[in-house]
């Protein structure tokens, strides 16, 4: 039995659809309020958890494998294997600001973000001193209300930024969903994990 942690929300729909096309699942149950599902053959159990919790379930071995965004992986640095880029959930992690923003190199930059570690790493790599303001949502509001100079956030289409007179200043990294695996499970369930990876890989590249 392979235990798979999937992120709730849009990414879950895309991943489940991918698993269906790959023949890993034969049907998808209507989730409703149910959180744990088993496939008809009884060899795969998957459960839906908050996207930020997927690496936690996998690192602790509750799930053998999981699907997590590269943003969540980079921010939390879980001790897991990243077996495959699923090429879904694509977006960018970027520095964004109100249009017309000019960086003042003599000042510490105030950065509002949910991705504190990623922001710190990025600015350390370019030698800039920053003040991090940790927010959990509506990050775009921070520079609009002059709480921060810039934000570090995920950008998919850029529509929200445009609607708020903002734009991307600098792309930090490209983001997509990854298949991650627990390090011990990889050793004890290698055959099952390799088969899952192969099937998902064929579907991702189809």
């Amino acid at each position: 039995m392979l235990n798979i942690a999937l992120p709730k929300g849009r990414l879950a729909d895309k991943t489940l659809d991918m698993m269906l096309r790959a023949g890993i699942l034969s049907s998808i149950e209507d989730s409703g309020r149910k959180l744990v599902f088993e496939n008809a053959a009884g060899d795969i159990r998957y459960f839906l958890v908050k996207p930020w919790d997927v690496p936690v379930y996998v690192e602790r071995g509750i799930a053998d494998v999981g699907v997590a965004g590269k943003d969540v992986i980079d921010e939390n640095s879980p001790d897991v294997y990243e077996l495959m880029d699923l090429n879904i959930g694509k977006c960018r992690l970027a520095v964004c600001a109100v249009n017309g923003y000019r960086d003042d190199p003599s000042e510490k930059i105030r950065v509002a973000t949910k991705f504190v570690n990623c922001a710190k790493r990025y600015y350390a790599s370019i030698g800039r001193d920053i003040e991090v303001i940790k927010l959990n949502g509506s990050i775009e509001l921070a520079p609009l209300l002059n709480m921060s100079d810039v934000i570090v956030d995920l950008v998919e289409t850029g529509t929200t930024l445009k609607e708020n007179n903002m734009g991307v200043v600098r792309e930090i990294t490209k983001i997509s969903a990854r298949l991650i695996a627990n390090k011990a499970s990889y050793r004890f369930k290698r055959g099952e994990i390799d088969l899952l990876t192969k099937k998902l890989g064929e579907t991702a590249n189809a």
Binding site: E59, R60, G61, D79, N182, K183, A184, R187, F188
Partner: peptide, 9 residues
């Protein structure tokens, strides 16, 4: 070394 039931080495 890995033991079945433990999450890491």
């Amino acid at each position: 070394g890995y033991a079945l039931g433990a999450a890491g080495a």
